[in-house]
Amino acid sequence: MSEVAEHVERLEQPAGPVRDGRGALVIDVRGPRFGAAITTVVLAAALVAQGPVGLGLVLWQWFAFAVASVAGLAHSPYGRLFRAVKRWRRLGPPPATEPEGPPRFAQTCGLVVTTLALLLFALGAPVAGWFAVGAVLVLSVLLATTGLCVGCELYLVGQRLRARRGAA
């Protein structure tokens, strides 16, 4: 790789977290959709396979949601994979960035519902558990195919409710 290409590569792949003017973490807008596409594949495979394989896939997805919720999207397995794909396919700098808050909240919503699904499996209610997994799958497909992030919308509604309460 030439010196110039290496420099461009470094500029396109910032070493640390990127923050906006207000100090909030920002992420590449393509990242959440990429993650949702993988989530869709994982959960669809889980629903088809069911049994121990399906349960293992749901557990893996729970882990991915948990890391994204606790440590941030950049540290989640899919966030790391997205950065690797960006480097590999030379996807270039983000077309736009977005605050990390809403998509991270959406991951937390996914974590809550997959936790519920795992609890239902443990309590001997597999059908209800798979319905919960199906609900997360539906939201992932929506994000992957249309960019519509229901969790992010809920986050914004919550912000407005907080503002309304503060104004009252």
Partner: peptide, 21 residues
């Protein structure tokens, strides 16, 4: 059967999502 059901679900959600958007 499950594979068909999941594929139909994915297709329906994607189409409805596009329409709504």
């Amino acid at each position: 059967l499950r594979l068909t059901a999941v594929l139909v679900l994915l297709l329906v959600v994607a189409v409805l999502g596009r329409w709504w958007q």
